[in-house]
């Protein structure tokens, strides 16, 4: 029990240090600033469109949050772990009673903490943007006291901006980013080049959105096509996460209300995926010559 506590303290210390270090990174701050501008800018971009501005606003706002989070996850993981090896600070750290898996877990949790913090700030800003849009929308409507029709119109506007299901979409974005971060951490345990880590993680990210297609084709063509093609498709299906699963976010943004049970299962899938990736990362890192 005591050793478990001590392990947790060490992980916590590394995570805290990673978070502070990441907050000082200029690249990550610039990406974050870019994200904030994108979220705010979505308020003005919507005036380009003809109708249903709320859908466009939500799509752009959530895309901004998602893109920023992905970039932070990529750059964060690609910079922070290789930098420790390059600067040889890792040697000092590992000469203390710190295990390699504790280092990996601490780094991951620190990065996840950073992503969670950024997600929260951007979500709050986006809530403000939605509120502003709602107020602008209500300006042109007759007051609620003027009749049932006015009340229905007001209700239609507020239903769009105060949709609690949007929280569900945020949770799913967070879960997806947690998996992307774990993928980036996995690659950073094998490589020291930032470009290599960013490129391979991005590759997994894009292939992950096509993984379900590869899986379907593989399952349909078992025994039917060349072994090379089947082997490749099976490899994609087995090794790459299914990022298409997170498309439920689109459903929520469109104003539909998918059951929370579906999102909860996706959350469990993400947690298990992250756990597997971190376990594999720790095992690979154990064998790595520093």
């Amino acid at each position: 029990m005591k050793s478990l506590k001590e392990t947790w303290w060490r992980i916590e210390a590394i995570a805290g240090n990673t978070l502070v270090e990441a907050l000082r990174q200029r690249v990550l701050n610039v990406i974050f600033l870019f994200g904030l501008v994108l979220v705010l800018g979505s308020l003005f971009l919507t005036s380009l469109t003809f109708q249903e501005e709320f859908k466009f606003l939500k799509d752009l706002g959530y895309a901004a949050i998602s893109i920023t989070g992905t970039l932070v996850a990529l750059m964060g993981a690609a910079q922070l772990i290789p930098a420790e090896i390059e600067r040889r600070t890792l040697h000092t750290l590992l000469s203390k009673p710190v295990r390699r898996y504790e280092f990996i877990l601490g780094k991951y949790l620190g990065l996840l903490g950073l992503i969670t913090l950024m997600l929260l700030i951007m979500s709050l800003l986006f809530a403000g943007v939605l509120w502003a849009k709602e107020q602008l929308g209500l300006l042109g409507l007759p007051p609620a006291e003027s009749g049932e029709e006015a009340r229905q119109m007001i209700a239609a506007v507020t239903a769009q901006s105060r949709d609690l299901n949007l929280l569900q979409a945020l949770v799913l974005i967070w879960a997806k980013l947690a998996v992307v971060t774990a993928v980036a951490v996995f690659f950073s345990t094998m490589a020291t080049s930032t470009i290599f880590i960013v490129c391979t993680t991005l590759l997994v990210y894009f292939v992950g959105h096509l993984q379900s297609v590869a899986r379907e084709v593989w399952l349909q063509e078992i025994g039917g096509s060349s072994w090379l093609k089947q082997g490749f498709l099976a490899l994609v299906a087995f090794l790459i996460p299914d990022f298409q699963a997170y498309n439920l976010i689109d459903e929520i943004i469109a104003g539909n209300a998918p059951p929370w049970a579906g999102s909860a299962e996706l959350l469990v899938y993400s947690v298990v995926y992250v756990a597997v990736l971190l376990l594999v990362s720790s095992l690979v890192f154990e064998d790595r010559e520093l």
Binding site: R215, F238, D242, L248, E251, Y269, Y273, V276
Partner: peptide, 27 residues
């Protein structure tokens, strides 16, 4: 690590198939 990945691969594909089916029905 390779062993863990292999075990996970066997578990994840059926799970992802179920998630995809549920998602398709919802969407």
């Amino acid at each position: 690590a390779v062993l863990v990945l292999l075990v996970w691969a066997g578990l994840k594909v059926p799970w992802e198939l179920r998630l995809a089916r549920e998602r398709s029905e919802i969407m």
